[in-house]
Amino acid sequence: MRGRTAFSQQNHPDSLSDLAEFGSNPGALRARLYAPEDLPRGAALVVVLHGCTQTAAGYDHSAGWSRLAAEEGFAVLFPEQQRANNANLCFNWFVPEDVTRDRGEALSIRRMIEAMVTKHGLDRERIFITGLSAGGAMAAAMLATYPDVFAGGAIIAGLAYGSASTIPEAFDRMRGHGGPTKSELQRRLAQASSHKGRWPKISIWQGTADRTVAPSNADALVAQWQGVHRVDAGHGRTETVDGQTRQVWCDADGNEVIEKYTIAGMGHGTPLNTVGPDGLGHAAPFMLDVGISSTRRMAAFWNLAGADARSEATVDATATHATAAAALRTYVAPERPRPARVEPVEQPEADGSRASATGVGKVIEDALRAAGLMR
């Protein structure tokens, strides 16, 4: 694993603009965006959700999404959490009010997407979403509650939809303790909306040395999505991509629907490759230069980037897969009042890659440790 480069989320260029008008905002989120000057009509949209303690601009600078959007000709939407909602800037991924269709933060993000599609004339069948940690868990919630909106998604160090609904449960699940059974996770995903069409294709990323979100959560995500895609664990293939393990599952039509990248020795964060001719982004806390660009690989999985982005794969076994596309629906839902919340926040890595939790978040964490619910 490559060494990390310290890089403050506050000391970075901001390439993003504000999306000022997108209707009512029950989740009280900020909307930021990047659209290339020559963005064509019918371009794709990628929605990017930052992790705890991060900002939209900081995550974009490190992950390189706006740069890739300029190269490939798509738009990027960056919902941003506000401290009034969550002291640690985490999306409230485990709060039922915020991860239910047409409510809370989920509805705010949905309305931002509709505003972007309308304003820029984007392709409703090429909308994708990704996120890290709490943002990854919120991306999983958006994919579960609005499968009709997204053609694909990517979850980095995240958790399965419906795996927790309280703070103690959230900490337990992050550490790989307890949680719903495979069949119950599949039931919760299937019942999160009334969707009857094709489901989004899913990319899952996890480090083996992650001490914040246990690697078993990636397995739970795979198991959850195998249900709606009607594939099982035994019908996949394994290959090596940029020195890392990629597992792939497919449906009866032979098209890829689920992929899982396991990054050997990586802690909690987004995998980057910042060097060489295809280098993208900048290393920072929780943005880890490990020699593989999750940003480029996700875009290739969604057919947003050139095929050469996955040309170095070494195949170990074969299987069949399916394409995902979804139609976007417009809707109106009532705005609901919302109190401020605090969400479980990542613990420091051994190298001190983030500041310790403060304020209300620290009080909650201390209480959970005293109760034996958190180490």
Score class of each variant (00 low, 15 high):
G27V: 07
E125C: 14
W65F: 14
G51R: 14
D251Q: 12
P348Q: 14
Q191M: 03
H195M: 07
A164D: 02
Q10F: 09
I127S: 10
M112G: 11
G23E: 06
A106T: 14
S108F: 11
R369V: 14
S293D: 09
R83Y: 05
T166A: 00
V241L: 15
A69D: 02
F286S: 03
T145A: 08
E21W: 04
P271S: 06
H235I: 04
V315W: 04
A333S: 11
E21H: 11
L288Y: 06
A367V: 03
R336F: 13
L39N: 00
Q226T: 03
F171V: 07
D242G: 06
C90W: 04
A87E: 13
Y261A: 05
Q9Y: 14
L122N: 03
L49Q: 03
G265E: 12
H177G: 02
Q10L: 10
L373P: 00
P334S: 07
T166Q: 02
V241S: 11
G236S: 06
A144N: 04
I202A: 01
Q10T: 07
E169R: 00
D98A: 06
D351C: 14
T270V: 08
A154E: 08
W93S: 10
A140G: 12
G178M: 04
V248Y: 01
N217H: 01
A157D: 13
A309F: 10
H321L: 07
L143H: 00
F150Q: 05
E80V: 05
Y261T: 10
A327T: 11
L288R: 05
D366E: 13
G254Y: 03
L77S: 03
R101K: 15
S66Y: 02
I364T: 09
V363G: 04
A307T: 11
R32I: 02
H268I: 04
T320L: 12
V222H: 02
V342N: 15
D60R: 10
A307W: 09
N85C: 14
D278G: 05
W199A: 04
A313L: 15
F7A: 07
A170D: 01
L33G: 00
F78T: 05
Y59L: 06
W65G: 01
I109M: 12
A252F: 04
Y261I: 14
M174T: 05
D219N: 12
M1H: 12
V117D: 05
M266C: 12
Q9F: 15
D278N: 08
T323L: 10
Q191D: 12
D289F: 06
Q82A: 08
D18S: 09
R4P: 00
M138E: 10
